[in-house]
Amino acid sequence: MVRFKNRYILIQVKSEKNLKLTAAELADTLRKAAHKHYGDFGLASVSNLNVKLFYDRRKLAIVRASHGPHRFITSILPLINKAGKELAQLKILYVGATIRQCKKFVLNYNNNVLRKIIGTFNSEAEKKEFTDEVSNSLEN
């Protein structure tokens, strides 16, 4: 029997304001965009769409879509400029076959972001202060 394949899309929501967004609102935004750009056919194709995880702090979301119609989602994400009620930009970070792969990517991605930020500091004291702050926030 043929397996039913899914694709998991890792999305970053960027906004200038402090965006308050829920997983349901994000799913609704994606469905509306699919209907706008790909019509009734597109909306029916992405009926399997589901926001599996939404990290509110980092504004990262993992969206599940069927393999094939996931291209509808990935192609319309750059055209979306509103998430919920606020202006926002959606950026595709990674498209993987499993949630595990997406989580691996998030770890790597966060590591790289932290290293970039640490690289901008000039003194050792600043670096230590920042790393302490990060480790404290992780403990909380």
């Binding site: 699919a34 790909y38 019509g39």
Partner: peptide, 10 residues
């Protein structure tokens, strides 16, 4: 066409 396949698909 636009109703069924949308702005891009149509």
């Amino acid at each position: 066409l636009v109703a069924i396949f949308g702005k891009i698909g149509g």
